[in-house]
Design a protein around this nucleic acid. Structure first.
Length: 500
RNA sequence: GACCCCUUCGUCCAGAGGCCUAGGACACCGGCCUUUCACGCCGGCGACACGGGUUCGAAUCCCGUAGGGGUCACCA
């Protein structure tokens, strides 16, 4: 209802002095291009105004956070060249920069809210919440969400139950009336009725804070002046604003960028696209091409130019040159940028980069270990192992191998798809070493009631070949991101296949 | 479903009332260059979602409609 037209762009910091911004990834998977995208805009904004760019790890989800994910995210951002001024690995005056190491801080703040009557303990069981949800769905309720059942519990009673050991979460008391006005630096005013937001959980029953609480507390403690994040956060911003007010803090300025999309318009997801920065890195995309491409998503440096360096982007950056629509992430154009950058390089540089990425010693060594017994001449190594390089392979000639005796096409597709998903949830598989893959795959095959025929299927899918060295050595060498993409391609190929 | 956001070529952007018979990039299609391919060059295809206003004048401002997206978790 508002916010259309001229959104009153504003690049001036709300707080005097240099801005402080942050990227706050959650270490629950592969480094996502969306994280890189938001990171880029934060980085550029900070550099433009001589401010600080902070990296904070939001690992408040105990079940899903992993160290390997955190490491991968840091490595990916660093590869892109988005260096942070403060972060878990480089330190800084506002550390620690990992939320799991700041639990006391959140506990104190929750207590403060509880004491002030601005938050309350909720003893509702997960079952009751599930029932509630079911009811709301059945009733086609216009409002979903928590019904504030425990909101008016007597504080003394509440305390007693807590001390008696009854499990509880702490929820924020949202105002029941009134309008929240979010002044978005990119979109203008966004109005939302407070009453539409439910009473958000601030502290889980395991004592860990939720994103909402930790994010507000940390942004304040770390002196964050501008919160540049994805559009997905708009609807919970009123909760954040209420929290700032509850603590008596000044809220930062908010800027909600459009979300990167799949070709079909939905939020970019790994179902439809390779979304791991590692995938692009592994396939030899250049970090500068990547950054430039990401920089054209929602931003333009001028009307007739879309090739620019990071420094040029920083130089030209202004919110008036940023649009709020959600751009489609188009790998074709990214490739074109990459090709142009390759062409523009002098030969020395090209050679250096090629050797650095494609002929990396660790990878070469894996390759040679397999080639040793299989080639007669050194010159044959690369042609022999061609399927270890490049992205896609051609399944056309070998598609007969996708037919597995005793299994329908549908079953075969299902098994391969299930494998793809299972990889994500298993630490051994995520590490993608031969030994880990073998142990994992063996269990997997059994769990879905298949036999070793699945191995050959995997081999063909990941290499396009029927004859390769040991499956798991081969998969390790193909690499996680390339392998996953090929399995996806194989599934797509099978789905498109006709008469079988 | 409710709330919020978004809406210019297939895609990414330019355009901030007349400069727009709407510009650039990627993709696609022709042609030139060339032993081939690539590069390069020239050209082509191709969009202001729709309907109402406001205005002398609207892609640009307002309203409505439609479409797309996001959010409605003890995930971030």
């Amino acid at each position: 209802m508002t916010g259309q037209g001229s959104p009153a762009p504003d690049s001036s910091p709300s707080t005097a002095g240099a801005p402080r911004v942050r990227i706050a990834p959650s270490p629950t998977g592969d480094p996502h291009v969306g994280t890189a995208y938001i990171g880029l805009f934060n980085y550029v904004f900070a550099r433009k105004h001589g401010g600080k760019f902070i990296l904070r790890i939001e690992d408040t989800d105990r079940k899903r956070s992993t160290k390997s994910s955190e490491e991968a995210i840091l490595a990916a951002l660093r590869w892109l060249g988005l260096e942070w001024d403060e972060g878990p690995d480089v330190g800084g005056p506002h550390g620690p920069y990992r939320q799991s190491e700041r639990l006391d801080l959140y506990k104190r703040h929750v207590q403060q809210l509880l004491d002030a009557g601005l938050a309350y303990r909720c003893f509702c069981t997960p079952e009751r919440l599930a029932d509630l949800r079911k009811q709301q769905e059945a009733a086609k309720a216009s409002r979903y969400g928590y019904d504030r059942h425990c909101r008016d519990l007597d504080p003394a009673e509440s305390l007693r139950r807590a001390e008696a050991g009854e499990p509880y979460v702490v929820r924020l008391k949202m105002p029941l009336t009134g309008t929240c006005v979010i002044e978005d630096g990119l979109r203008g005013s966004i109005n939302r009725e407070y009453g539409e937001s439910d009473d958000q959980v601030l502290q889980k029953s395991d004592g860990f804070p939720t994103y909402h609480l930790a994010n507000v507390v940390d942004d304040h403690e770390m002196g964050i002046t501008h919160v540049i994040r994805g559009e997905e956060w708009i609807s919970s911003t009123p909760k954040h604003i209420v929290l700032y007010e509850a603590f008596g803090w000044e809220a930062p300025r908010f800027f909600h960028l459009g979300l990167l999309r799949n070709p079909n318009g939905s939020k970019l997801s790994k179902r439809k696209n390779p979304v791991s920065v590692d995938y692009y890195r592994e396939l030899g995309f250049l970090p500068e091409s990547m950054l430039n491409y990401l920089g054209t998503m929602g931003f333009s440096i001028s009307g007739d130019r879309d090739r620019f360096t990071l420094d040029e982007m920083i130089e030209a950056f202004d919110w008036s040159r940023v649009s709020a629509g959600g751009p489609v992430f188009d790998p074709v154009k990214l490739r074109a940028f990459n090709k142009q950058d390759l062409m523009a390089m002098d030969l020395d540089e090209l050679q250096r980069r090629f050797v650095e990425s494609v002929l990396r010693p660790d990878r070469l060594r894996l390759l040679l270990a397999q080639a040793q017994k299989r080639v007669d001449l050194l010159d044959e190594v690369l042609p022999w192992g061609a399927y270890f390089f490049g992205g896609g392979v051609d399944y056309k000639a070998i598609e007969k191998k996708f037919r597995i005796k005793g299994r329908t096409r549908k079953e075969t597709i299902k098994a391969l798809s299930a494998y793809l998903e299972a990889i994500e949830r298993d630490e051994r598989a995520r590490a993608f070493t031969a030994a880990g893959l073998e142990a994992f795959t063996e269990e997997f095959v059994e769990s879905i009631g298949w036999n070793k025929k699945f191995y050959q299927l995997l081999r063909v899918a990941t290499t396009g070949q029927a004859k390769t060295p040991g499956l798991f050595e081969t998969m390790e060498l193909v690499g996680k991101d390339r392998a996953r993409q090929r399995i996806r391609d194989a599934v797509a190929h099978m789905k498109a296949g006709e008469n079988w």
